[in-house]
Amino acid sequence: MLSVENLNGYYGAIQVLFSINFKVERGDMVAIVGSNGAGKTSLLKSIMNIELWKEGKIVFEGIDITRLPTHRIARLGILYIPDTGGLYHGLTTLENMQLAAGRKIIEIDRIKEIYPRIEELLNRPTDKLSGGERKIVSILRSLLIETKLIILDEPTEGVSPVITEEIYRMLRRLNEEGKTIVVVEPGSRLKIALKHVNKIGVMRTGKLEYFDTTEKALKELELLKKLIFI
């Protein structure tokens, strides 16, 4: 579904991504783990063609998206959720949802199924929500878009363990409904990520050092930890 081939990424003259290769299949739920500055965010941004300059090839469902403008990539069915959640502060939750839905009518019942408390949030500006609520709302938007692949930058950053569990359960559910999911996470979330995903990657100083199924990764847990934490 998504394949990244020989990707090099640069911020100005500084190289931040070094020949990255990996493939995500339809229905996968992938976590890419790495410490701060490993290049996880840059990787996601380069998929969406935001800000950085790059070489290599990124293909999504047979279409070369390497040089497409961001909005065209989004319209092909990739939803990018940055670590800030990417909500428009000052606009209400409902307005944020409507922006994702475009001209479609929002099916609020379907959202309620996944997150029953949504109704209390609808008319509040998103900057007045708690950190956890923001993260959840930003993910719920994916229900409104015809999206095939969701890529999330640290969806559980700064969130309590209970809500972290809840977010992963939501992601799992979206995955079971047929959406492919890629999350990037810091090392501290390795454990919970391994519980939910079927493929795992490890990034370190701009290189993808490890990428394999969770099954296999669990057998090589020591190696994984060494790559992430040392």
């Binding site: 990417g86 502060h89 409507q98 922006l99």
Partner: peptide, 25 residues
């Protein structure tokens, strides 16, 4: 209107708007 909403969205965060499929240019 939805176009008005999109316009306000572009003002607040052009990058995210692009990521939501809005042609900011």
């Amino acid at each position: 209107t939805i176009t008005g909403l999109r316009t306000r969205a572009v003002w607040r965060d052009p990058v995210m708007s692009e990521a939501l499929g809005i042609n900011t240019r």
